[in-house]
Design a protein around this nucleic acid. Sequence first.
RNA 1: GCGGCGGUGGCGGAAUGGUAGACGCGGCGGCCUCAAAAGCCGCUGGGCGAAAGCUCGUGAGGGUUCGAGUCCCUCCCGCCGUACCA
Length: 822
Amino acid sequence: MSDLRELRYEPKAIEPKWQQVWADEHTWEVSNEDDGREAYYVLEMLPYPSGEPHMGHLKNYALGDAVAHFSRRSGKRVLHPMGYDAFGLPAENNAIKTGVHPRDATAASIASFQRQFREWGISIDWTREFGTHEPRYYRWTQWLFLQLFKRGLAYKREGSVNWDPVEETVLANEQVIDGRGERSGALVEIRQLEQWYFRITDYADRLLDDLDKIQWPDHVKTMQRNWIGRSVGAHVTFRNEELGKDYEVFTTRPDTLFGATFFVMSPEHPDVLALAEGTSQEEAVRDYVRRALLESNEDRGAADKAKTGVPLGRSVVNPVNGEAIPMYVADYVLMEYGTGAIMAVPAHDERDFEFATVHGLPIRQVIASAPGAEDELPLSADGVLVNSDARFDGKPNREALEQIVAWLDGEGRGRRAINYRLRDWLVSRQRYWGCPIPIVYCEQHGAVAVPEDQLPVELPDVTDYKPRGRSPLAAVEEWVATTCPECGGPARRETDTMDTFVDSSWYFLRYTDASNDTAPWDRAVADSWMPVDQYIGGVEHAILHLLYARFFTKAFHDIGLLSADEPFQALFTQGMITRDGAKMSKSKGNVIAPSAYVDRYGADTARCYILFIGPPDQDADWSDEGVEGVHRFLARLWRLGIEVGRGPADSPHAGDFANDADAVLTRKAHWAIDKVTHDLGDRRFAFNTAISAVMELVNEAYRQRESASPEVLRFAAATGASLIFPFAPHTASEVYENATGARVWETPWPAADPAMLVADTFELVAQVNGKVRDRLTAPADASREDLEALARSAPNVQAHLEGRQVVKVIVVPGKLVNIVVR
RNA sequence: GCGGCGGUGGCGGAAUGGUAGACGCGGCGGCCUCAAAAGCCGCUGGGCGAAAGCUCGUGAGGGUUCGAGUCCCUCCCGCCGUACCA
């Protein structure tokens, strides 16, 4: 090898060469025509093009590309597309600051992403590429909006909305975190505005139930379940006789109705002031409500906040026992959930208990853990009814619950009910850089859909991007003023744009038929690819994007546009790349760009390292030393490929080995094929151990290279290249060509020869009382008796048997013998 | 509070109930070299021991088992999500 010592692994020469081949030959383009191979759709979440790609992108696309390559070489017809989620606030905020049109900033960023994806060697079908900001795409976003509108799934109504005072737009519930805007971090205000919504709540049950049909990580399913927040219980009507008004409450525990000792309404409840009017409480209530509404969501929601509230000076009648119980207003009751009013059962609810204690209200136990038990209150666990009613006392509470609800139902005072935490999806945004809502308003006809042949409603240019409490589009009078499609009379365009999550809720469908200009997709084409077989992205989208995309898919299924009713059959959520244990951020100054490593070590090193660093679903800390190690490994593989020269690279057959080195190395190669195939299969994503298996193969080849025959060394080099191809496609292509003259991506995924996975001998572990006392070489086909005898013959085993009585012997063929002594 | 994930050498991490620490980083030693870099080869959990070997060791404590990082129970710690949801 001395003459090769000076040879240097030069990714800068290797990588562009192969990228050129793939581009010239359109290698990764895939037809929509069925050719007998199984269709397989692998997709990574599309990037938001802002600035340059970061490490999270590198990880995301390195993961997806490995899946795509492995699937292709396993005989599948693979769809692996790319696009850009290009509408959104960062580009617009930049426009406000610099005056640069968001389209220009976005185009510059997209160009950078395109260039780097090519430099990374990601195997993308570029013929299907688009940005969601292009009219040829958002034309169909608008079309889909109108399909939902026609079916009542998109509607406009006035209601309380979250207003972000910094972004100057409304936000969806999903975009408000701890009472603050997701992007701005500003405390959101509640405003009454007329806004567009999607009726996602119609799908609550299916979104919940169908989680059982898809292969997603449990924690993501759990987050979606919690977000939908389905609770089974009852609606029960309490009557206020003075005003003659009925108030319904939602409760999950109608079995505790006999323990209700007061009734509480939210400060936002529309009837609170009217109820208190004319009572001695009128002023106190007005005061309390005013203060409660001023308080921020954050302060109000504070975990251990004392329970405040004031009496309304009125009472309601408990329908189960006719008892009049006092009414209160208190801010621990939320208007957004249930009916904004609750029955309070202090003996069996912690919050009610706390309130009753502070305000000196009666606490009546109606469930006991066992008959006659002395329970500490509040008791939320199941038990038997007490102090309730002769019909129910002594009954298990779950049984009593059903009977009480049935009884109330008969009386017309209650019924079974299911309540959800999920709210309809608010999609209006008072911002410029988004998809215009294709609606016009006519004095005569109200909100009218823009006719489909007039789509897209193109986003006009504006000079001032700054939102001023209304969309910047509202200032473009010549665009706003239009005619009504119904009557031809004067009409005005909707000036709000859509939430960008609308754009990204259907992009995976457009990829299947991206150049279709008569429909968003052809149903037969979409059906041939959908659902996405493997979706890959960050867990930060567990609720928003992943829930919205599921809703859209189900709605389109119902409309008849699609067979699939789930978008992503399998989901993999990748962990974050950190630096010095912390999330990379500009403020911490610990951001490192992929380009720095790609330029210095090559894309293959960067891609391999990011997959080698640890299990991909976990967070991982970037280390420059680790990068060097992976680079050394690829260089060793590359040098091996040079050294072995070009020629046949077939595996020798068992028994045909010229020497021990050939046997050892051939077996190692087959072991590596088996290991890597297993680690890549069945959505295991064990890429870190797959790469280390190839490292082991290369290490073995170096150890054996003085004695192994050239053909076997070549087989080892070719196998190593073949196996590392999904992670380091350029180096793999180079090494494979150097060794065999063939193209690795045109070569089927290798299969391990089962005969090579077993050796003639194995290392037998000899244990005494479970402790290893010796290691012996044993024939692979030895009988249990032979193995036991062999183990007993080992001197160090005998030393530990000395003077003891053997009570049992465990023999695990191919592994160990354990002799149990006393 | 609740839900989820995790805790293994100096570090990142491997281990279908069967040799704990694969692979990589770092460290040590050797070869090559005038010297270095690069490369190549080897060693590398702790303690005792000249060695053979013995012994301890996967957050803590129990249990099941011939055998536990892995399964069960009780705790402790960390991270993520979520939270007055009736």
